[in-house]
């Protein structure tokens, strides 16, 4: 039984990580095609990617869109959650439903909708338009995470703060936000990750300045190359670093 458990463990991790391992391995491939047999190792593809100006430009664009749109989605999601958890309005349930609804709509549909709206408004495709799209997909996520994290505990602490003389702004900055810190960071970094990876909206709503997934896609059109693996490995390294950072700073259980 015990051995079966270990076999299962290895199998499941192989299943999850094999694609990533292959991707990273063949980024060190010496020949021109990232297919077996492996004949590396070399770092020349990394050098090529880092010297590729349009690729680096795309990397910067992606970071800009991801961090900015995630910040806006977080702010809007926080305000919505704070409001709906505190006050009972007519149609509170409906409003909550509507806020979360975009999660169930496919990114393609959202992208098409935004494209149509922007066209009618005369707004050109751009990084900003893409950013708006990413706020649309990440706002429901931020709202759901933060709303779930706001319990009675939070409400009582806020009430106590008001009782001790705090203004509404002081309540938000000194009590609500610090108490929600783990949820706020989780929502923010998840949003960054989703925006960083997102392709369809970025593809339809950018034109000259593109994000990394769009740049990689256009690179793929000219065929497979270990350079694509190299950029993929860099992206993977960034994501995994963020995750590890988050794990050791935020989600580490306090010793009690």
């Amino acid at each position: 039984m015990r051995r079966l458990g270990w076999i299962y463990l290895i199998a499941i991790f192989t299943f999850i990580f094999l694609p990533v391992i292959v991707l990273v391995l063949f980024s060190f491939q010496d020949s021109r095609l990232p297919v077996p047999p492996f004949d590396g190792p070399t770092l020349k593809w990394y050098v090529q990617v880092i010297n590729d100006r349009s690729m680096m430009e795309a990397l910067r664009n992606s970071a800009f869109v991801a961090f900015t749109s995630a910040a806006i989605a977080l702010l809007l999601g926080f305000l919505a959650a704070q409001g709906l958890s505190r006050v009972i309005l007519p149609g509170s349930v409906l409003m909550r439903g509507l806020l979360i609804a975009p999660m169930t709509v496919s990114y393609l549909i959202i992208a098409l909708g935004l494209l149509t709206v922007f066209n009618n408004l005369g707004i050109r495709p751009s990084l900003w338009a893409t950013g708006v799209g990413h706020v649309v997909i990440n706002l429901p996520l931020c709202f759901a995470i933060l709303f779930a994290a706001m319990g009675d505990h939070q409400k009582n602490a806020e009430r106590a703060a008001r009782d001790l003389g705090a203004s509404e702004l002081q309540v938000v900055f000194l009590i609500s936000a610090p108490m929600l810190k783990p949820a706020l960071l989780a929502a923010y970094f998840l949003s960054v990750t989703f925006s960083w990876d997102e392709f369809i909206i970025a593809f339809l709503l950018t034109r000259f300045d593109v994000t990394l997934p769009v740049e990689i896609w256009s690179m793929l059109r000219s065929g497979l190359s270990p350079a694509t693996n190299a950029i993929g490995s860099i992206v993977f390294l960034v994501s995994i670093s963020l995750l590890v950072l988050l794990e050791i700073t935020v989600f580490r259980k306090p010793k009690s």
Binding site: D152, N156, A157, R159, A160, D163, P178, M179
Partner: peptide, 14 residues
């Protein structure tokens, strides 16, 4: 000029 001591204490955990 009142303060309340709440049933669940409502201390600020952070």
């Amino acid at each position: 000029p009142t303060t309340t001591m709440f049933q669940d204490y409502a201390l600020f955990p952070h």
